[in-house]
Design a protein around this nucleic acid. Structure first.
Lengths: 143, 143
DNA sequence: ATTTGTGCAAATCGTTTGCATCTGA
DNA sequence: TCAGATGCAAACGATTTGCACAAAT
């Protein structure tokens, strides 16, 4: 069965990924990782991930979802996206890239490839070093 | 008295600013505006502004501080700064500019002048138009 | 066997709201 | 006068925490 093979494969990949990151591959972490990484790049909130897990018959508590998201982030498997608003979003794409933020919809989209070029960068304040540069292009429905 | 003159002047400026913005210059709004605009460009949270007001013997409720910050923002006197984290920060500098974010300290600093140049910008997604581009340069203490 | 993770419910934090009271024009 | 502001306390939503139980090495 194709489905089963895929599931096994994903399960294995994810297990390795977790081990490599120094995280014990528990049922919940494996399931959450599968949800996160099986559909390409995503931007999820804790609430959304929890819903998806429950929908996928992976009963997991919201507290564990929060824990997991933070552990994944510390391990470099996720990146927190800094967008205004109360909710925290996590990005499964940890490579160097920037974002569109759709006002009104509160939605985040990756800006593909090297769509953004930074021409001039200021020198960091005394004694500081640059960690990362985040560019958010805010867009809204035309008209 | 220098102090008194300065106070009067600030009070007057602020009153006019509020009137121009279509806001009734109430005691609380005038006081909060004085705190906000008398020390150059600032980045404040509701909590910080409330503290400063109380310290300055301007008793004002936290709810009113929130209301005021939002009213000022709608009126274009403040700008909301989108930085990760739960708290909302407001910037008294409403001109076009970008920010340093100091990790660890959770502090925001304006990037002076045209310190940032954006070389390449992606086209907005179908049917969308760019509202604004925000650049956050994350820095940390060297070492 | 031991360490680490999980679930639940309660606690916390930032922010908002309802409503009675006050205040500026 | 009276629309609009304020203060308080209660409501809220997102996130965290404490602790007993369960699972991974």
């Amino acid at each position: 069965m194709t489905t089963r093979m895929l599931t096994d494969t994903a399960g294995k990949d994810v297990t390795d990924m977790l081990r490599t990151a120094g995280l014990r591959p528990t049922r919940q972490r494996v399931s959450l990782a599968e949800i996160l990484y099986s559909k390409g790049d995503r931007h999820v909130s804790a609430e959304l991930l929890h819903e998806e897990a429950v929908d996928a018959d992976v009963p997991v508590s919201l507290a564990t979802v929060y824990n997991t998201l933070h552990q994944f982030t510390e391990a470099g498997l996720l990146r927190e996206v800094a967008i205004e608003g109360n909710k925290t979003y996590f990005d499964t794409n940890v490579s160097d890239h920037h974002h569109f933020f759709i006002e009104g919809e509160n939605r985040v989209i990756d800006i593909p490839g090297e769509g953004v070029g930074i021409g001039k960068l200021p020198r960091a304040p005394e004694g500081m070093e640059v960690v990362r540069v985040d560019v958010v292009v805010r867009v809204r429905e035309k008209q």
